[in-house]
Write a protein that binds this DNA or RNA. Structure first.
Length: 494
RNA sequence: GUCCCCAUCGUCUAGUCAGGUCCAGGACACCGGCCUUUCACGCCGGCAACACCGGUUCAAAUCCGGUUGGGGACGCCA
C-alpha cells in the first residue's frame, strides 16, 4: 500500500479561520490514522495579498490546536520553476496553447454574456491558431496567456469522490482555462497540481467549493501523465443565513485566534469542528485524540453543508452553543493537571500566577480548580469569575451585592462576629465552620442563609458558587477572617 | 445564462447504498422536575423533523422521476 500523504495548503491572506482549521483537522486525522504524512504548504503565489502576519497566524493557530505537520511549511513561490516547466511541457505536448486575447476584451465579453444571461465561457478564439499565426503575434510582441486545451470530445471527465461518489462533467462544459498569466506567472490550478504531484499527495481532502477546480485539475493530471489522487470533498460551513462563512463578512467569530483568546480548550474546538460535517455513526460525540483518529473515516464525512449556529449580539451564546457546551464538558471532565496547564497560561498573562502553584501549593491549586470548574465556561473564567480564590483584587458583582449584602445592613456587624469565631477555631474545616455559622445564626435568630449568602458575596464577589463551607476551606482561615473583617467598603456606595 | 453538489427536529446529526425492527434515535438549545443555603454539575421527563408532487411496492425517510428550495463554481484570485 502506498503511503498516505495529505496536505493543508492555506493561502496566507488572513488569519486561520474555523473552516480552514476544519480542513486542516480532517487532513491531520487522515494522516495520523494511516501513519501517513501531513504537509503544510503555504500557497503564496498571489504576492499582492499574501502577508507575513498571516503566515505566522496560520502556523500559530495550527500549533495551538495541536495539529502538527510532518513536512513544511513549504512555500509555493519556492517552486516557481516546477510550475513554469510544467506549463512548457503542456505547451509542447499540445495540451495547452497561447492565447492573445486581452484581459479587457475578455472582461467585456464576459460582462456582456452575463448581462444577456448567456454562457460566459471563453469562446476559443485562439484555440486553433496556426503556428504561423502564433509566430506572427509573438513577433508583434502581443502579450499572451497560456490556456489548457480541454479535449473536444464526447463524454465526460469523471473521478471518484470518497464523499460524494462519482462526479462527472462533460468536456463540453469546461472552458479552456488559463494556466499561466501574461506576466509568465502560473496560476493556482496548475501550481496546485504540480505541487501535489511533487509532494506525492495521495489524498486531497478539501471543501466542496473546489469541486469545479477538481474536474479541471483531473484533466491536468492526465495531461501531465501523473496518477490522480483520491479526492474527498467535504461540505461547507455556512452561517445562519446559509452564507459561506468567511473572515471578511463574519469577523473574529470565525477566527481560531478568537477562541484562543476567549479561553477555549484547543481540543474542544477540534472535537466540535470534527462533528461539523462528520460523525462516527454512533452516539458518541466526545472523543480523545486517539479515539477520533481511530474512528475517523473519509466515507463518513457528510454531504450536507452545515450551519455554524451563532447569532450576533447574543452574549450568552457568543458562538455556536454546541461548541460552548463541548468546551464546558472538557473543562469539567478533563484531567485536572492538563487543565492546570491551560489556567497557568491565563494566570501568567493576568499576572496572578503564583510560582507556589507548581510547588508547595500545587495540591491546593488543583483541588481549588476542581472545586470551581463546574460552573465555568472557558479557562478565562478562573481569572475572572474565580479570581477571589487566587487574588485579593476581585470585584464584587452588583447583583449579589444588592441582594446579599446591602439588603441586610446588620451583616456589617454580623460578618465580623463570624470572623472572630472563625479566628479561634483550631481546626478550620467544613464541619467546624458550618456549625460555627449555624450557631451564630441561631443566636442572632436569623436564617443561616443570610450569613451564608452574605459570606459568599463578601468572600467571592459572586452570586453563586460551590458549597459555602468548601469555599471557606479553599480560601483558608486567614483570608476568610481578613475579608470578613473588612466589609465596610461594601457599604460605601450605598 | 451554464455546470456541479445537496435536501431528516431551531442547530449538529443517526437511519438512505442492502425498503419492513422508524407513528424516526442521539446531542446542543429551550421548557418542567429532582437535588440544594446559592448557582451550577448530575439525574429524570417534555417540546420538536423525514421540503413537495407523482411513480414502483404488500410495505418508502429509505428506490425512481419531477418540482421547489439551498449551496458552490463559472477570475490573467487561491
Amino acid at each position: 500500500m502506498t503511503e498516505v500523504r495529505v496536505r493543508f495548503p492555506p493561502s496566507p491572506t488572513g488569519y486561520l479561520h474555523i473552516g480552514g482549521a476544519r480542513t486542516a483537522l480532517l487532513n491531520w486525522l487522515w494522516a495520523r490514522k494511516n501513519n501517513g504524512k501531513l504537509i503544510l504548504r503555504i500557497e503564496d503565489t498571489d504576492a499582492e495579498r499574501s502577508t507575513e502576519e498571516s503566515i505566522a497566524g496560520i502556523i500559530d493557530g495550527m500549533t495551538w490546536l495541536g495539529l502538527d505537520w510532518d513536512e513544511g511549511p513549504y512555500f509555493q513561490t519556492d517552486f516557481s520553476d516546477d510550475h513554469t516547466k510544467a506549463a512548457k511541457k503542456l505547451l509542447a505536448s499540445g495540451h495547452a496553447y497561447k492565447c492573445f486575447c486581452t484581459k479587457e476584451e475578455l472582461d467585456q465579453k464576459r460582462e456582456a454574456a452575463m448581462a444577456a444571461k448567456k454562457d460566459v465561457r471563453y469562446d476559443g478564439t485562439c484555440r486553433d491558431l496556426t503556428p504561423e499565426q502564433v509566430a506572427e503575434k509573438e513577433a508583434q510582441v502581443i502579450p499572451s496567456v497560456i490556456r489548457f486545451k480541454v479535449p473536444q470530445k464526447e463524454g465526460k471527465v469523471a473521478y471518484e469522490d470518497k464523499v460524494l461518489g462519482t462526479i462527472e462533467r462533460s468536456y463540453d462544459d469546461i472552458e479552456d482555462f488559463v494556466i499561466v498569466r501574461s506576466n509568465g506567472k502560473p496560476l493556482y490550478l496548475l501550481c496546485n497540481v504540480v505541487d501535489d504531484i511533487r509532494d506525492r499527495i495521495s489524498h486531497i481532502i478539501r471543501g466542496q467549493d473546489h469541486m469545479s477546480n477538481t474536474t479541471r485539475q483531473v484533466l491536468l493530471y492526465q495531461a501531465l501523465d501523473a496518477p490522480i489522487p483520491v479526492f474527498a470533498h467535504m461540505p461547507l460551513t455556512l452561517d445562519l443565513q446559509k452564507r459561506k462563512i468567511s473572515k471578511r463578512s463574519h469577523g473574529e467569530i470565525v477566527a481560531v485566534q478568537f477562541y484562543r483568546e476567549k479561553g477555549f480548550i484547543p481540543w474542544a474546538l477540534c472535537n466540535f469542528l470534527a462533528l461539523l460535517g462528520w460523525n462516527p455513526g454512533t452516539d458518541q460525540e466526545i472523543f480523545s485524540r486517539e479515539e477520533l483518529i481511530e474512528v475517523f473515516t473519509l466515507e463518513r464525512i457528510g454531504k450536507v453543508n452545515s450551519v455554524f449556529n451563532y447569532q450576533k449580539g447574543n452574549a450568552k451564546f457568543f458562538t455556536d452553543p454546541k461548541l460552548i457546551s463541548i468546551n464546558e464538558h472538557y473543562l469539567r471532565t478533563m484531567d485536572i493537571t492538563e487543565l492546570a496547564e491551560l489556567v497557568k497560561q491565563d494566570f501568567e498573562e493576568q499576572d496572578i500566577w503564583d510560582k507556589a502553584y507548581d510547588g508547595d501549593k500545587r495540591e491546593w491549586f488543583l483541588t481549588t480548580l476542581d472545586l470551581i470548574r463546574d460552573r465555568f465556561h472557558t479557562t478565562r473564567d478562573f481569572a475572572t469569575l474565580g479570581r477571589a480564590y487566587f487574588a485579593d483584587d476581585y470585584t464584587v458583582e452588583a447583583k449579589p451585592l444588592k441582594k446579599n449584602i446591602l439588603k441586610h445592613p446588620d451583616l456589617k456587624t454580623w460578618l465580623p462576629m463570624l470572623a472572630e469565631r472563625f479566628a479561634v477555631l483550631d481546626d478550620f474545616n467544613k464541619e467546624t465552620t458550618e456549625s460555627t455559622s449555624r450557631e451564630l445564626a441561631e443566636e442572632l435568630d436569623i436564617k443561616p442563609g443570610i450569613l451564608i449568602n452574605g459570606m459568599r458575596t463578601a468572600l467571592t464577589g459572586q452570586l453563586a458558587g460551590p458549597g459555602m463551607f468548601d469555599i471557606l476551606v479553599a480560601l483558608g482561615k486567614e483570608r476568610v477572617v481578613n475579608r470578613l473583617n473588612n466589609i465596610d467598603h461594601l457599604y460605601d456606595g450605598a
